[in-house]
């Protein structure tokens, strides 16, 4: 399984689309590794600088409808290439969400009021996230406050994460 723990990058906006996560001009790349420098390059967010803010983070927490737009799997890939394998949001666009689990990555949904609380408590400082896939809990810790949050994961999605993605899962079954 991939790593689902680490420092959190907070993206305080809804409807972040896949063109913002990885602009189409980089879709001419034929390897995942080549995408790495362009993560979140076109994100519209005040004060955000992808070159400064992406490195050193292993998780993203954001608002609603993350990953809307294009079907490009380059979006989860570019996150993964930057060691970000878990995104926590109110909800996700369907294709992006499926792409995350298909790659053995985690797209975790929490209620809007929980996400709001997380932004209130942790959004302004350095925060680490730990994921317990057995207990279905997230632990957030900023050195002063520690909070645990329970999340739901569909049994099929959990199987994909354990198998390392849909290709390995499908290979074993179909």
């Amino acid at each position: 399984m991939k790593n689902f723990n680490g420092k959190v990058l907070f993206l305080d906006r809804s409807d972040i689309n896949t063109d913002e996560i990885i602009p189409a001009k980089y879709l001419n790349e034929s390897t995942k590794a080549a995408l790495k420098p362009y993560c979140l390059e076109d994100l519209l967010l005040d004060g955000f600088d992808p070159k400064r803010d992406v490195p050193g983070h292993q998780a993203v927490i954001t608002r609603a409808n993350f990953g809307c737009g294009s079907s490009r799997e380059h979006a989860p890939w570019v996150l993964g290439e930057n060691d970000i394998n878990v995104v926590v949001a109110e909800n996700f666009a369907r294709i992006f969400r499926q792409n995350m689990f298909n790659c053995g990555m985690l797209a975790i949904e929490l209620p809007a009021d929980t996400i709001a609380e997380i932004f209130d408590l942790f959004g302004s400082g350095e925060t680490t996230l730990e994921t317990d896939l057995e207990k279905h809990t997230l632990t957030l810790d900023n050195g002063k406050i520690v909070r645990n949050y329970k999340f739901n994961i569909d049994p099929f999605d959990a199987e994909l994460v354990k198998a390392g993605g849909w290709v390995a899962y499908a290979d074993s079954r179909y």
Binding site: E73, I95, Q98, N99, N102, G165, W166, V167, A170
Partner: peptide, 12 residues
């Protein structure tokens, strides 16, 4: 619409 992994399994 689906991503490249779904496409790969679809092709195979």
């Amino acid at each position: 619409g689906i991503g490249t992994t779904d496409l790969e399994v679809g092709i195979l």
